[in-house]
């Protein structure tokens, strides 16, 4: 006799089970196909792509397209490769993620534990910012950046992403902290801890899951952003998404598909890494607000 567990709660026959797994496997392969095509073709010489089958394994393995995409490929007018733009992206993404997460955490802390008149309305307005389409703010934002003297710079892009991200990060942290016992904050107040001390010593150490959610969300969004990058970046501050577009769109001579594939993987790699490293915390964090632990 075995106890009921989630694993045997519904008993399924062997045939059903095989059917389920085969179906799942087919779907998994289907979704992996684009990545596989990109990987395969990025390690082939160009002649094999133009002359052969997209799906075939390379006859000659080469890492030349990867090197070329990284450091010598023609991006727009400069043969710099993607490297400087990759660095630009990191310079934009890291501060933008950190700042928007910290501000979101502080907002969530204030909106739940230091309630003031109008807090609910303010939160509603911040939530509203999550629904504003990017395109609407392009012109006003360009004007603001111009007035601040940040047009075409990395700090300008950081500002744009922080402003756009606060709505989301505030939402995450507010909902997380709403389930956080207020008595803890009161106890810390009586113990003599101030506003920031309570935040730093009590709330933040317990915010692991929601920090991961916020970081993943912000990182993927900002890294993958194309619109703001192409609209507000100058020559020297373009992010990798814009550079990848320039690489692929440059129409001088032959299209080096293998280099394009390698470049695309470079552009997608950091978000993939972030997901793989912290993906399991992501789900845990999303659940944390809804189910009281």
């Amino acid at each position: 006799m075995s106890a009921a567990t989630p694993g045997n709660a519904v008993s399924t026959g062997r045939f059903t089970r095989v059917l389920i797994y085969v179906t799942l496997l087919i779907f998994a392969l289907f979704y992996l196909l684009p990545l596989a095509v990109m990987l395969l073709n990025s390690v082939k010489p160009l002649s094999e792509i133009t002359g052969g089958n997209m799906m075939a394994l390379p006859k000659v393995w080469t890492i030349k397209p990867w090197l070329e995409a990284w450091s010598t490929a023609q991006i727009g007018v400069q043969p710099t490769g993607l490297r400087p733009y990759f660095i630009n992206s990191i310079e934009i993404v890291v501060p933008a993620v950190v700042i928007s997460t910290v501000l979101g955490a502080l907002n969530g802390y204030v909106l739940t534990k230091w309630r003031f008149r109008g807090a609910q309305v303010l939160f509603g307005l911040m939530l509203f910012s999550c629904f504003i389409p990017f395109q609407i703010v392009l012109i006003p934002m360009a004007r603001v950046l111009g007035l601040l003297g940040l047009a075409g710079t990395v700090p300008g892009l950081i500002l744009v992403h922080v402003v756009y991200g606060i709505g989301f990060t505030t939402l995450y942290f507010r909902n997380y902290y709403a389930a956080f016992p207020t008595e803890l904050v009161r106890a810390a107040q009586i113990d003599g801890a101030g506003f920031f001390r309570i935040f730093w010593r009590i709330l933040l150490p317990l915010s692991g899951p929601i920090i991961v959610v916020s970081v993943i969300w912000q990182f993927t969004n900002i890294w993958n952003d194309f619109l703001f990058g192409s609209s507000f970046a100058g020559q020297a501050s373009q992010p990798i998404t814009v550079a990848l577009n320039n690489l692929v769109q440059s129409s001088t001579g032959v299209k080096a598909y293998n280099v394009h594939f390698a470049g695309a993987i470079y552009a997608a790699l950091p978000t993939l890494v972030v997901y793989i490293v912290s993906g399991r915390f992501f789900v845990r964090g999303l659940m944390a607000g809804s189910v009281k632990g």
């Binding site: 016992p181 009161r186 106890a187 107040q189 003599g192 801890a193």
Partner: peptide, 20 residues
């Protein structure tokens, strides 16, 4: 006067122990 300056101590219903 701020709670911490009153020289009082409080025991809460939920104990309010810092979990971390």
């Amino acid at each position: 006067v701020h709670p911490s300056k009153r020289n009082i101590a409080m025991v809460f219903q939920s104990y309010a122990l810092y979990p971390n």
